[in-house]
Design a protein around this nucleic acid. Sequence first.
DNA 1: GTCTATAAAACGATAGAC
DNA 2: GTCTATCGTTTTATAGAC
Lengths: 186, 186
Amino acid sequence: MPVQKVTKVEVVKQALFLFKKQGYHRTSMSDLAVACGLLKGSFYHYFSSKDALMLEVLETVHQYFATRVFSIAYDETFPPRERLEKMIAKQIYVAASTEGGCLMGNMAIETALVTQEFLPKMREFFEEYLRALAHLYSSKFEPTIAQKLAEQAIVEYEGAWIMVKLTQNNQFLHDVHQHALERFDA
Amino acid sequence: MPVQKVTKVEVVKQALFLFKKQGYHRTSMSDLAVACGLLKGSFYHYFSSKDALMLEVLETVHQYFATRVFSIAYDETFPPRERLEKMIAKQIYVAASTEGGCLMGNMAIETALVTQEFLPKMREFFEEYLRALAHLYSSKFEPTIAQKLAEQAIVEYEGAWIMVKLTQNNQFLHDVHQHALERFDA
DNA sequence: GTCTATAAAACGATAGAC
DNA sequence: GTCTATCGTTTTATAGAC
């Protein structure tokens, strides 16, 4: 059958969904194939390996956040504080739209000390995230201070997801959002 | 005469070491057996399953922190701020003594949405952690404020480990320590 | 006939359990 | 050590679109 049952984009989307919820090692090629309506053998016409698929997922997530979330920080049609508010709201909204929180944070915890393969893409993501927040904070603070405030916001954001997973209480995300703004107003 | 090659305590210790570094799903029973100098078969003399072993590890970690770390919060031979300083220093020191950061945070990310088996023990740990910090902050702040400050400290602590894993820069832990004290002094 | 996305089967390796 | 199941991966064959 030369008619594709799913597109490559759809495969990446399903993989993101499963990797976020179940993690990398717990998600099997069979899980991924079934989610796409394929047999696991057929799956290799889309990706050469599980690693390659994960790299593509990480790249896709990075691109999405760069163009749709982090970009808000540089949109000069709004004042910095409003950009900060929009960007954080979007970040939380996007991550919370499917189960599992932040894929980048999850993969950092699960794979950083086991393989170096995913590290570069994860680091790029967080560097860009950091740059966006620091850019906003630097409209009111010294560069070194702005950098620290940005780091603090990211650290809080990632930590909040751990507590949300444990307690199933989204309040932690709201608090993080609030703190990021209070940090700006201080 | 069948002589135990290693004690149960030693097995738990090795399991903690590997689970922290490699995660639950990535660590095999073979890995664990080798680390203990046992054959795979001998391993089930100590634990009935991988799950049961993880539960024992979580319980051991909980007990250790309850008696050696969280207890500092209630030691009235020191003033609250000093207790806070000691407790956070100890928390970081203990977690940083072996690779992998905070087992409880790691397992929350890796398993919370896959199995409910480990949730109760992880929740107990964080409740006790929260109680200890809130107790200290409540020496200066209203209970509801103290609770929020405690939550913030834990969220930051867990998030910091993600950034440490990514950047291999322990500065994030130092900053968390500092913020926890600044929060007290505010 | 050729191309290609699929199903089907099977590979070696390794998982957890006994 | 041995078991069975399943892992990630590869191979083979088939079926439909050009």
